[in-house]
Design a protein around this nucleic acid. Structure first.
Length: 769
RNA sequence: GGUUGUUUAGCUCAGUUGGUUAGAGCGCAUCGUUCACAUCGAUGAGGUCAGAGGUUCGAAUCCUCUAACAACCACCA
């Protein structure tokens, strides 16, 4: 044995596990019956981005690996199913950056071509994450690896989409959505970050039609939207404005009559108590427009520029530019009465950090309330439990005020939504395509069809925006019944709509009920482990859709872990330069050291401060284990030199061992071992990995090495049975945490002892009695 | 505005159901390498457990309040 533990042997150990198929469970012939007798332990890996290397957060998969290895050793049928994520918008965003560097943009290509380009790019990088997960020792069953764009997965999410449609849970509607004009797509509320912004409150005077000398003052943070105002709103009980009931007002610049409306939504204490109403660019105003039947004028395009509904001089300018122009113009007209400093929350895109533009656009929604109700019920019935429990409260709170979920995204790297439109039915589809000269054409079908034939449009298609009222069909065949000119929706599903279905889809759920044996055996899965930041994005939605599709919760335990921070507890980021790359660490200190450092002394769901100091300390621990084993080896060698024909007998149980010795030192370490077996087993069952690792560290280093081994040094070879027994059992206890070094030592000892079990990874968990 | 979390040794953090002199790693000081490991061993310094009040025979741990910090949720112009 080497004097020091060499982590470079870790890859060979992993190959050994793979060769022996140590991580592939056997599914019995009758899974439904078999699982009643012995319940499998199942985790579906939260799929990492397929084309990105792992970051420190991913290294926390170690928590799942600990659970998996523990249950495998307990003898449970154990499955940890791996997969990778196409990571829709993230990946497209990165790819577009590459395009920009080449002086190109996504608008230079038709949809099909661009999709293929991204696919090629991802395929080139795929495998990095997989290789790295192996390097970190994760005992995933690679025979079951999945990808979120697998045709089988696509087929399943489409089937569920269709079922939802048939159940009336899917609708297309024109609503105010969070639109990022830079990313060119709509987002759900969760993808909007609210930032405190120091701005101003502008007070505008709108003159009354009856008496142009009389004004109503409105206060606004967004002056530019006044070009789309269609009313002024006041709280119905506001005494200051009672006299204006039924009156009309003049919208300056536009010079148009607009009504004064009264609505409870208005807070009389804000500004002047009178508020301008811009239905197309504010969710509240849109709401009011519906109740009061106001006009809705959309003045901002998807690219963020003002359109031809705005007066000529503002057209083609961005909101920030128009804001300046409007303020200046209102001031010149004498309608700007005052400006106050004002600090308020403004929604920003989580991706590119630009302000979100609330825009009126048709999107596809999921009616979420019926799904949420069932999910809440299931959690109340403890069918899914949260750990730590406090996250359950977060879950309930969010579910309580959940709103319908917009699931269409205006990006192309994802699952193209399976609905079709018929262009024979109407000509107000807004279509963008590249023509034969690679020129981008963007207009209504009404105009396009005069100059281009349908096939050219279809071939070069980039996007189609169907009016909210347009018919849509769930299959191309159905759409073709109404005429030959059929185009598929160009939007894709929100990545989370597909991820929400990951647990049952990866296990082979089938829409027709002919599920695979895997599904029958392993579903519902046991634990879902992830960081709390995607509790709503993912965990809640998996529960909702899982119950909807399969009638069962997707997992029994939602286990939340925390973020891996740097040594000062600060969030890692490339710009701060404090990023720790797990693979580099594994190469320098060994994967085991990194794994141990990630769980040692960490309380459930509390932030993790990771430092090279901490990793080094654990590397030393790994080396300590290695050297203790080396010592035991040396003692055994000595024994064998003197007794070449005698085999070392390894006691198989505590009682057998106790029959061999009555020495108080021996009895003490034996009792301590029993204690740590009990505590570790209990801690692992209750997800206290930090405590478990600390106890083991303490036991092995201080009780076993510092105390017991030191005492054995003046004794003869009689101590061998105790020494070996304690060592092997310690290796087993430590194996879920540090699988490489423990397996490596075990394989070394195999030459000395005739172990029944070929691999430590599939050996049995220590028993105390 | 609502919610949750954090506050323990110089640094980063443990401390499950309240129970003897409050723990670890790193760092620091002194000593020690023939005899598994200097990626080591021995010894030691260092904390009024954020503050105040309460419950209790007993509180870092339970309750109330206060302060600082952090995070999440939220269609207030």
């Amino acid at each position: 044995m080497d004097k020091r533990y060499q982590p470079d042997k870790e890859t060979d150990i992993y190959k050994l596990w793979e060769k022996k198929r140590a991580f592939t469970p056997i599914v019995p012939a009758n899974p439904t019956e078999a699982k009643k007798k012995h319940k499998p332990f199942t985790i579906i890996l939260p799929p990492p981005n397929a084309n990105d290397p792992l970051h420190a957060g991913h290294a926390l998969y170690v928590v799942e690996d600990i659970m998996i290895r523990f249950h495998r050793m307990l003898g449970d049928p154990t499955l940890w199913l791996p997969g990778t994520d196409h990571a829709g918008i993230e990946t497209q965003f990165v790819f577009e950056k590459h395009l920009t560097q080449k002086g190109k943009s996504r608008f230079d290509y038709d949809r099909q071509t661009l999709f293929q380009m991204i696919a090629n790019y991802v395929n080139k990088n795929r495998g990095i994450a997989v290789k790295q997960m192996k390097r970190l020792g994760f005992s995933l069953d690679w025979t079951r690896e999945r990808f979120t764009l697998d045709p089988a997965h696509t087929k399943r999410i489409f089937a569920v989409f269709k079922k939802m449609y048939q159940d009336g849970l899917i609708y297309r509607d024109e609503q105010i959505v969070n639109y990022c004009t830079h990313c060119g797509t709509a987002f759900s509320n969760l993808e909007v970050i609210h930032k405190q912004v120091n701005s101003h409150l502008w007070y505008f005077k709108y003159p009354l039609i009856d008496n142009p000398k009389e004004f109503i003052e409105v206060a606004t943070t967004r002056p530019e939207t006044m070009l789309g105002d269609t009313a002024v709103a006041i709280h119905p009980k506001d005494p200051r404005y009672q006299k204006y009931k039924g009156k009309k007002i003049l919208l300056p610049i536009i010079n148009k009559e607009i009504p004064i409306i009264f609505d409870k939504m208005i807070d009389p204490d804000f500004g002047t108590g009178a508020v301008k109403v811009t239905p197309a660019h504010s969710p509240e105003d849109f709401q009011m427009a519906k109740t009061h039947h106001l006009n809705i004028i959309n003045i901002i395009n998807f690219d963020g520029k003002f359109n031809n509904k705005a007066p000529k001089k503002y057209r083609g300018f961005y909101a920030t530019q128009v804001r300046k122009m409007v303020i200046e113009d209102m001031d010149k007209l004498g309608f700007l009465s005052k400006v106050e400093d004002y600090s308020h929350q403004v929604g920003h895109c989580y991706r590119c950090h630009n302000p979100i533009e609330p825009l009126l656009t048709p999107q596809l929604f999921v009616k979420i309330k019926p799904l949420a109700d069932k999910a809440v019920e299931a959690v109340k019935q403890k069918k899914t439990k949260f750990f730590p429990q406090r996250f359950q409260k977060n879950f309930f709170q969010w579910m309580d005020k959940i709103r319908d979920w917009p699931i269409s995204r205006q990006i192309i790297w994802g699952h193209r939504i399976p609905i079709w439109y018929n262009l024979d039915e109407r000509d107000d589809f807004l279509i963008s395509f590249v023509d034969d000269n690679k020129k981008l054409i963007s207009s209504y079908w009404l105009d396009i069809k005069k100059k281009y034939d349908f096939d050219t449009v279809k071939k070069g298609l980039q996007s189609i925006i169907a009016p909210a009222k347009a018919n849509y069909y769930l299959s191309e065949k159905d759409a073709l019944k109404h005429g030959p000119l059929v185009l598929q929706e160009t939007d894709t599903f929100d990545t989370w709509f597909s991820s929400a279905q990951w647990p049952y889809s990866t296990l082979g759920w089938q829409a027709d009920g002919q599920h695979s044996p895997d599904f029958e055996y392993f579903y519902p899965t046991t634990v879902l482990d992830t960081m709390w930041d995607i509790l709503f994005f993912w965990v809640a939605r998996m529960i909702m859709i899982g119950i909807y599709a399969t009638g069962q919760v997707p997992f029994e335990i939602a286990h939340m872990h925390s973020r891996v921070n740097d040594l000062h507890g600060k969030k890692m980021s490339k710009s701060k330069g404090n990023v720790i790359e797990p693979i580099k660490i594994a190469e320098e200190f060994g994967a085991d050291a990194l794994r141990m450092a990630l769980v040692y002394g960490v309380a459930p769901a509390s932030d993790i401060a990771l430092s090279t100091d901490k990793i080094r300390a654990q590397r030393n621990f790994v080396n300590k284990i290695w050297n203790a084993s080396r010592f035991v080896n040396i003692i055994i060698d000595r024994f064998q030199q003197n007794h070449p024909n005698l085999l070392v007998n390894l006691p198989s149980s505590f009682s057998e061992l106790r029959n061999l010795t009555k020495h108080p030192d021996d009895l003490e370490i034996i009792a301590d071992l029993e204690k740590v077996i009990k505590s570790t087993t209990k801690n692992l069952k209750t997800y206290r990995f930090g405590q478990a690792s600390e106890d083991l560290y303490q036991f092995f280093w201080h009780q076993f090495c510092d105390s017991y081994i030191e005492k054995t040094k003046d004794k003869g070879v009689d101590v061998i049975p105790v020494l070996v027994f304690v060592l092997i059992n310690s290796l087993k206890l430590l194996h879920p945490f540090i699988p490489f070094v423990t397996e490596s030592i075990y394989q070394n000892f195999k030459q000395t002892f005739a172990f029944k079990e070929g691999l430590l990874a599939t050996s049995s968990w220590p028993k105390t009695s």
